[in-house]
């Protein structure tokens, strides 16, 4: 549990960070909150020779609203997300999810950018970002580009992020006022990754689901955007049969690994259970909000 040698860099701007990363290519890794990378380095499963700490780049921090879009800087910590009044009113699901990540100590260090960019299927934010239809802003030696969260994840720890690129911010369309939401996470204990988790955003009109978006966490090598499950809910009152069907649809795209949280079969079943429960909770919140 002792890391090998590395050179520590602390750039002050995105441009400087990109330059350092470009100079060292594969040998360099950006460091945000460090709660995934540093344990991997201590286990010597990650052995970067250059560690580029993004903590000194102030332009990577902060939450702002630009019209109907909320922009969150990559180095914004989960604790900051929880504290934000703007998010609490416009995107309460972010607060609800953040509160289920790790524990208070880790949330003070862990960042949203690190959480979504690392490609760890256990992380909670990638699924949520897919549910919300978020866009990632990337910056590298060859310039800036954007990638939709729904297109970003290719496999465990394998994303669209190129070598030398850093994720600088996330923009999220604000869902309509009165929307229903829920992040339902089944986990063994505080600090654990999800056995299965589901994010739901929906709107209701006349007691029926008008719009619905669902994404699943940690039941595959990537987060899963559960399009079919969401489709099944549209126009329904989320009666028991619909909830069951949506749960089945979520299960059908899940492909979890067996681990300490349970067998693959159990974890797949739980994807269905938490999806149905998230839908029911989101609907009840939408009805209350209406």
């Amino acid at each position: 549990m002792i890391p090998g040698q590395f050179v520590y860099h602390r750039p002050a701007s995105i441009a400087e960070a990109v330059a350092v990363l470009a100079a060292h290519g594969d040998e360099a890794r950006p460091l945000s909150g460090g709660h995934s990378l540093i344990p991997m380095m201590k286990l010597r499963m990650a052995t970067p020779e250059h560690l580029v700490d993004l903590a000194g780049i102030s332009e990577l921090k902060g939450i702002s609203q630009q019209g109907q879009t909320i922009v969150i800087g990559a180095m914004t910590t989960q604790a900051d997300l929880i504290k934000s009044d703007l998010l609490a009113s416009a995107l309460p699901i972010i607060r609800e999810t953040s509160l289920q990540i790790a524990d208070p100590q880790i949330r003070t260090k862990g960042t949203i950018g690190g959480n979504v960019a690392n490609g760890d299927p256990g992380n909670d934010m990638p699924g949520l970002m897919q549910c919300l239809g978020a866009t990632y802003h990337l910056s590298g030696a060859s310039g800036e580009r954007t990638v939709a969260a729904r297109d970003f994840y290719q496999g465990a720890y394998f994303t669209s992020l190129d070598v030398g690129e850093i994720l600088t911010s996330i923009s999220i369309p604000v869902p309509p006022a009165g929307h229903g939401y829920a992040y339902e996470k089944l986990k063994r204990k505080i600090g654990d990754y999800a056995t299965a988790a589901t994010a739901v955003i929906l709107t209701m009109a006349d007691g029926k689901v008008a719009t619905c978006s669902i994404a699943l966490t940690n039941v595959s090598s990537t987060p899963l955007f559960a399009e079919e499950a969401a489709q099944l809910c549209l126009g329904t009152s989320l009666d028991a049969a619909t909830l069951k069907a949506a749960g089945e649809a979520a299960k059908s795209i899940s492909d979890p690994a067996a681990d300490g949280r349970g067998t693959a079969e159990y974890r797949r079943e739980m994807a269905g259970v938490v999806t149905a429960r998230a839908l029911a909770k989101a609907a009840s919140r939408a009805m209350k909000g209406a």
Partner: peptide, 28 residues
């Protein structure tokens, strides 16, 4: 309720870290 030192069929010890080994927090 879950604390366990487990081995796979090859004798690899699995879950020997606090990620998996159940130490309840004040919440649980």
């Amino acid at each position: 309720m879950g604390q366990e030192i487990k081995y796979d069929e090859l004798g690899n010890v699995v879950g020997a870290s606090f990620m998996d080994f159940f130490i309840p927090t004040a919440v649980e």
